[in-house]
């Protein structure tokens, strides 16, 4: 019980830039600066999928990086969550119908929280990551029942 409660209090994130124009990446990095100080929620940018709980994706997915995104997701230990940051990661954005993109991050990995915006504000990104952290507890419960939940929640 105590162990499960701790899940939402220390979400460690790994950030992957799929095909982004770097607008969202700059906002994500701004969120991690001392101005917003996400460490007060226990959020740490670990940069290592094996330590991470939450995968933060920005940008639309193309044929080249779909495999990389999938590998990063598979390397993370359960329970894990995915947050799509920005319009491109949510749906593909203005690149949606392009021949070279697959669409949003949810075409490759199950996305739990969508943070729309071009680019979203740091406050919105923070809220998205914290919402994903709340979901981790639920996922742990389902893990105990024997099934690992990968249902995308929209």
């Amino acid at each position: 019980m105590l162990f499960r409660k701790a899940l939402k209090k220390s979400p460690w994130i790994v950030h992957y830039d799929c095909n982004s124009c770097n607008g969202c990446d700059i906002e994500i990095l701004a969120t991690l600066t001392p101005v917003y100080d996400v460490e007060r929620f226990g959020i740490i940018n670990v940069g290592n999928p094996k330590h991470a709980d939450i995968l933060v994706v920005s940008g639309s997915v193309n044929h080249r990086n779909a495999r990389v995104l999938k590998t990063i997701y598979e390397q993370m230990p359960h329970p894990k969550a995915v947050v799509a940051i920005g319009a491109c990661a949510c749906s593909g954005g203005i690149f949606k119908e392009c021949y070279n993109t697959l669409g949003g991050a949810d075409t490759v990995v199950p996305v739990d929280v969508y943070v729309p915006g071009c680019a979203p504000r740091p406050e919105a990104i923070m809220e998205g990551i914290l919402k994903a952290a709340q979901l981790l507890e639920e996922k742990k419960k389902n893990m105990k029942k024997g099934e690992i939940l990968n249902v995308a929640k929209s």
Partner: peptide, 12 residues
């Protein structure tokens, strides 16, 4: 919190 979280994760 970090420690308890680590213990409730899957072992890889």
């Amino acid at each position: 919190y970090d420690l308890f979280k680590l213990f409730s994760k899957e072992t890889i």
